[in-house]
Design a protein around this nucleic acid. Structure first.
Lengths: 222, 222
DNA sequence: CCGCTCTAGTTTGTATACAAAATACACTTG
DNA sequence: CAAGTGTATTTTGTATACAAACTAGAGCGG
């Protein structure tokens, strides 16, 4: 075992761990949009003091996942129709950039991985495994971002994406939309494999537009 | 005095105040890129305890202005050439979106304000007032973002922009570049006034590209 | 019965205290 | 003298304690 292989023992600070856990909880819907976050309740739940928890909440607030109201505590931000309308042109432009960069920098190995994930995703769809599908979907999109080799872009899109992606838990996906999404992914993968940047960008942007349209239908009118 | 006019008494939490102050200090270069941030030193300076200061640092970390290393404290992030190369395509795409949205939603009043700022900026340039120029420049760009009427876009661009804008303090601007920038602004203002979205987007993107090129020349090779 | 006020209890904001890790530096040892 | 080791000091991480603000609800008055 070479020296460079030894990963340093993970003695991560609590606030770091808490940030990730809370983020996951929000993304998974375990903390529902609009829900009020009681510091004490979470402290009891995690068995930590308020100090690291508050630090974690501050970071999530800066990411836009929670809203802080002075002396009134934190709450999970809720995605409104207006937010969706705002986010759409921004995310659309970023998707297009991601597509072009990914096509330019993607490796053979990444293409192979993407294709494997794609067939796994198709299997989940056929089996009616929505949760598994979401997981694959997530990993494919993350892979494309990774292929773009641009951490700044990745960070921007994830910051925005996490906000939008939560809408899934506010609005269920229809059968039709699901089938359509899978089909769109087939085309996306092909564009990636052939490194057709412009087409990939356009497909990703369209994929997003369709998702937004579906969400808009399903989102509560309020 | 109407009820809606009463601004709530400013009883802002310390961590909020600290976040803004520290952000300004970083953006103004009072805290230099790469500089190590000692919690104790800042606490003494502001006369507060470490708790709110640490919360402020966490938020700035989430914004990408400071880097946190476990058990080793915080430091102001340094803009590298690679960061610039990464940020450029992302910001470029966003500038284009901003231009189109701004053209579509800008009001007459905003156009008038922009033109006033523009002549003020020209005056600063002729007077050799670099600091004043920066201030005008900043306000014009902020106005354009405001005109786009898209808070999400604003937030994204500011998050990215603050990172890049700091480069000014790492790299001084040449006389030539300054004159060029002023000229570019004239064209930008005209496109805004005539609500030519595509042209405005392209001009903003080009303006950014030129700025990036100038920075790249002036940035320390490391 | 509705609405106000005042108080008790809860929750957030900040400071301080203590624990753990990292740094600095003197000291030993080859 | 160089390299390494051990200890003292500093700095960061977390918990607790206390202060200030908000919330809820009882009691009072219209």
């Amino acid at each position: 075992m070479s020296l460079s292989d030894v990963t340093p023992i993970a003695r991560r600070p609590l606030h770091e761990e808490l940030t990730e856990r809370l983020r996951s909880m929000i993304l998974d819907g375990a903390l529902a949009p609009g829900e009020k976050i009681s510091e004490k309740a979470l402290c009891d739940r995690f068995g930590v003091s308020r100090t690291p928890l508050r630090e974690a909440l501050k970071m999530l607030a800066a990411e836009g996942l929670v809203a802080l109201t002075p002396h009134r505590g934190a709450s999970v931000t809720r995605l409104t129709m207006a937010d969706l309308d705002e986010a759409f042109p921004v995310l659309g432009a970023l998707e297009a950039v991601a597509g072009e960069l990914a096509s330019a920098h993607v490796t053979e190995a990444e293409i192979a991985t993407a294709q494997a994930l794609q067939s796994q995703m198709r299997a989940c769809h056929e089996a009616g495994d929505l949760k598994g599908y979401f997981a694959c979907n997530e990993r494919i999109h993350r892979l494309i971002l990774q292929a773009a080799k641009n951490p700044t872009l990745t960070q921007m899109m994830q910051a925005l994406g996490t906000r939008v992606r939560r809408a899934r838990y506010q609005a269920n996906m229809s059968e039709d939309r699901w089938a359509q999404a899978v089909a769109e992914h087939e085309a996306i993968l092909e564009a990636l494999a052939t490194r057709d940047g412009v087409r990939l960008g356009a497909l990703l942007k369209q994929h997003l537009a369709n998702k937004a349209a579906a969400l808009r239908e399903a989102l509560p009118p309020a």
